[in-house]
Nucleic acid binder design. Structure first.
Length: 863
DNA sequence: TCCAACTGCGCG
DNA sequence: AAAGCGCGCAGTTGGA
């Protein structure tokens, strides 16, 4: 059965669904299936006890439960949802509600061996089910599992869609569709028969969604939706022509928008060539503005745009003036629009007007991945699939006829504006408006950082390019020379050392000699592992070569080759312009890509960082928050011991390093033997204890795992573990409070009020508030420093890099002292009332990202 | 040929 | 039954 497949991002437009069906079964004719139904259905010939099973339950249902297909029990009884999972589903509804249920399946005949019904079978049944829904007029259709979700909406990814209301129209009847998890999946997850070990979490989610529907229908009086009428999608969209009249209409429309400002916000959407404005041929092709009712779509630099030079300039001038005007601007992913507009009109566009962002709104309301695209959201709020409305290839907009681009552009901005209205209402209702505003504050400084970028030193890049290629070749040659590899190549074919499957075959079939490469952690699917830890135990020269090859390839492929001229991360200005996202992580951290600066080597091969340099005459100044997550744990839990340790500068990691050494001296021996001095030995042991004992324990690691981490006997670890929680019992109590809060609300909150929703495992419940709060502290500080960059006209106060707990600035050499006076206090003195621990930053300075020297630690209680 | 899943590995 | 959390990217594999 296919109900738990997770095809997260894939979107199934209606047309695409048909294509998909055709591709799977070239002979399949959807129209014919719909018309001929059972006459062409492959299930018609199967031996079935209850063929074409009639829907069961109420004839005037309030809730219509739509499953995938009958199973064995259902086929035997001739009634839907009577098997084990069916009973579990029925149990979710109180007895008076049960009388209002009607049951049906997407496919009415049982497919042999409960296989997933084929597209043809699904299409053959479709009309009969649609007719039944239309006839019986339910208020909510509960789509059970992935198949029903796809059947009704064309979407996949039930885990991302479950629990959302989607307006639908079935014939003349309009109602809600809510996908829910399949009870069979929930039950199996609970029994833990496969890797879905998030057991009761999924059951909680499933049960809460059922309960939500019952509550909304029987106590809250859910109103029926009014899905958008596809006939009127393009209403009020005005295409501006490239002539005097067009210019006049543009001016008039902008004035009309301004007349209603700031009451009525206006959406802005740009269509561009390239996703970033830093390429030599990056241009804005068209733009569109809409208040949801009136929309204009304006050509700009699309090849089909026929503005004369003066008129084009006037269009830009009008747009710029309007941007600085009183209207509140909405965008879907405002970072994108802001970045392009900053490139067109200068950086002061970022803070000179107020921005709203429908993607951020969606993220605040529900951070689940894959559903923040405008097309998913229009489906959810308006009941139609936006992308399916136009057959446009987003990657080829420059080659697409102008009028087509404009219509598409207009539709996007129109629905961005309308979406803003809907989501704003929900943010208010859920009490999340404050969180949303807090989130929006960070956008200008992020765009500013992206626009400034950072210069790359090509000499360094070339140096590492040569070095790594040389090392890669050396390792490859070493591998080729091994006799087992020669044997493998003679018998099987060329050996690719980068292929884990080939490497496994080589080891198992040619090297073996009783050596084990079985996977120890069962979080992965494959039986064998060739990762670093496993290979390190392999007593054969291939292990050393492979690890060296991987080490060098990783460095070269991920950090160096894309920075060479022509590499995808290097722009014509010689800089990288890393993109920071605010809506990708589940915890509110920023994520970074193109290139991801958050995973550049920091420990082994940190010297690679020297490719990132500063503009001429500047140095890099970094402020690193010290132990920020520990401080957040202390502030959230108010644990007396932890707070005291922070105020008195007591080093709890070293404390635990010593405690562990006392109980189990042998774990320290290797550190003592390896280090030059005793002090250095303790230093490195301390950092191991920090990362393998203290933090994992705070984040929910159990004793067995900790013992394995440090390689100490479980009996001794147990004593230490108990001692740890005895000492920090305030943290333990706080964790219990978090669990109770989650049980009640099905979400947890950061100290800044940001929510992360179910399903959450026990450890995510502990971790999310900490990680999210720590990130908010850092990003907010970056934003406040950056604001000073603008108001005090000190451009060097705009941060360039944010890596979870640090902010890095490029400061002119003669302004460093001055900059620190601004940066340090802003970073350590936090404007939140829950701050009850001292906050500290380490400042380091240097000519590039690698060669930095720590100049001091500054703490809030010393300033 | 393209896409998604998987493995492995870098960072906090 | 078993459990630290959070990311993004490169490269391979296998299915459509």
């Amino acid at each position: 059965m296919g109900f738990f497949t997770t095809r997260s991002e894939k979107r199934w437009a209606r047309g695409r669904r048909v294509m998909e069906i055709r591709r799977k079964a070239p002979a399949l004719d959807v129209k014919r299936c719909n018309e001929m139904a059972c006459e062409v259905c492959t299930l018609a010939n199967e031996k079935i006890q209850s063929p074409q099973m009639k829907p069961s339950g109420s004839n005037h249902p309030r809730i219509y439960i739509l499953g995938e297909a009958p199973g064995a029990w259902e086929d035997q009884d001739g009634i839907q949802f009577v098997g084990r999972s069916g009973q579990y589903l029925r149990k979710q509804f109180p007895s008076q509600v049960r009388k209002t249920l009607r049951f049906n399946n997407c496919v009415r005949c049982r497919p042999p061996d409960n296989r997933t019904p084929s597209p043809l079978e699904v299409e053959c049944c479709r009309q009969s089910i649609l007719k039944d829904i239309e006839k019986t007029k339910p208020e909510v259709v509960l789509g059970v599992g992935d198949v029903a979700l796809r059947w009704m909406t064309g979407q996949t990814g039930i885990k991302h869609w479950c629990g959302r209301y989607i307006p639908i129209r079935v014939g003349k009847h309009a109602c809600w569709f809510m996908p829910i998890l399949h009870p069979a999946f929930v039950l199996r997850a609970r029994n833990g028969s496969d890797r879905e070990w998030l057991s009761t979490e999924w059951a909680d989610v499933f049960e809460s969604h059922c309960a939500k529907v019952v509550r909304d229908l029987f106590t809250e009086r859910l109103e029926l939706p009014d899905p958008e009428d596809l006939e009127h999608l393009y209403d009020g969209i005005e295409i501006i022509e490239c002539d005097r009249r067009g210019l006049k209409r543009l001016r008039k429309r902008l004035q009309a928008f301004d007349a209603k400002a700031p009451l009525i916000p206006v959406a802005i959407d740009l269509e561009t060539h390239h996703l970033r404005p830093y390429h030599s041929d990056s241009v804005v092709l068209t733009f569109s503005l809409s208040d949801g009712t009136n929309t204009i779509a304006v050509p700009l630099d699309h090849p089909g745009a026929m503005w004369d030079k003066a008129s084009r300039k006037e269009v830009l001038r009008l747009l710029e003036a309007w941007l600085h005007g009183p209207c509140i601007k909405i965008a879907h992913n405002a970072l994108f629009e802001m970045e392009w507009l900053a490139e067109l009109f200068g950086l002061d566009i970022l803070r000179s007007c107020s921005w709203d962002d429908t993607m951020v709104q969606a993220y605040i309301l529900d951070e689940r991945k894959g559903n923040m695209g405008l097309d998913s959201l229009t489906l959810q709020y308006f009941g139609f699939n936006l992308k399916a409305q136009s057959d446009i290839d987003r990657n080829k907009l420059r080659e697409t006829p102008l009028d087509k681009v404009l219509r598409y552009n207009g539709l996007d901005s129109r629905y961005t504006a309308r979406l803003d209205g809907k989501q704003r209402g929900r943010l208010d209702a859920e009490g999340s408006m404050g969180d949303y505003r807090f989130h929006m504050k960070r956008l200008p400084s992020i765009v500013h950082a992206q626009a400034l970028g950072l210069p790359i030193d090509q000499r360094e890049v070339r140096k590492y390019d040569n070095l790594f290629i040389h090392e890669i070749e050396k390792a490859k040659a070493g591998i080729k020379g091994l006799k087992e590899v020669k044997q493998f190549e003679a018998e099987v074919g060329p050996f690719n050392p980068a292929s884990t499957t080939q490497l496994t075959k080589l080891i198992v079939n040619y090297i073996h000699k009783g050596q084990q490469i079985e996977r120890k952690d069962h979080n992965r699917k494959s039986k064998y592992s060739t990762d670093k830890v496993t290979l390190a135990l392999l007593k054969h020269p291939i292990a050393r070569y492979i690890l060296r090859l991987r080490e060098m390839s990783k460095l070269h492929g991920t950090y160096i080759s894309n920075l060479l001229p022509g590499g995808s991360y290097l722009y014509p200005d010689g800089c990288i312009h890393t993109e920071f996202h605010t809506t990708f992580t589940a915890t509110r951290r920023l994520s970074s890509d193109n290139p991801n600066v958050q995973n550049f080597p920091m420990h082994k091969h940190a010297e690679v960082r020297s490719v990132v340099v500063t503009p001429p005459g500047c140095v890099l100044v970094s402020g690193d928050y010290g132990q920020i997550e520990a401080r957040v744990i202390a502030m959230a839990s108010k644990d007396k011991v932890l707070l005291k340790a922070l105020w008195e500068r007591y080093d709890i990691h070293m404390d635990w390093a010593r405690r562990i050494e006392r109980v189990c001296p042998s774990v320290f021996t290797p550190y003592r033997d390896e280090a030059e001095t005793k002090e250095k030995a303790w230093d490195s042991f301390r950092s191991v204890v920090k990362n393998k004992w203290v933090f994992p324990t705070f984040y929910g690691s159990f004793c067995e795992r900790l013992a394995r981490n440090l390689d100490i006997p479980i009996r001794k670890a147990q004593g230490l573990y108990d001692e740890f929680w005895d000492m920090f019992n305030g943290v333990r109590k706080w964790q219990d409070r978090l669990l109770a809060f989650y049980d009640k609300h099905l979400y947890v909150e950061t100290l800044t009020g940001h929510r992360r929703h179910a399903p959450l495992s026990r450890n995510m419940i502990f971790n999310s508030p900490v990680q999210g709060t720590a990130s908010d502290i850092v990003v907010d500080a970056g934003d406040r420093v950056s604001e000073a960059a603008e108001t005090d006209d000190k451009p060097w106060l705009q941060w360039r890099l944010n890596i979870h707990d640090d902010l890095t600035f490029a400061v002119p050499k003669d302004k460093v002292e001055d900059a620190l006076v601004d940066i340090v206090p802003t970073m350590v003195i936090l404007p939140f009332k829950w701050v009850i621990a001292p906050i500290s930053v380490d400042i380091s300075i240097g000519p590039n990202w690698y060669n930095k020297k720590k100049i001091g630690t500054f703490s809030s209680d010393e300033l």
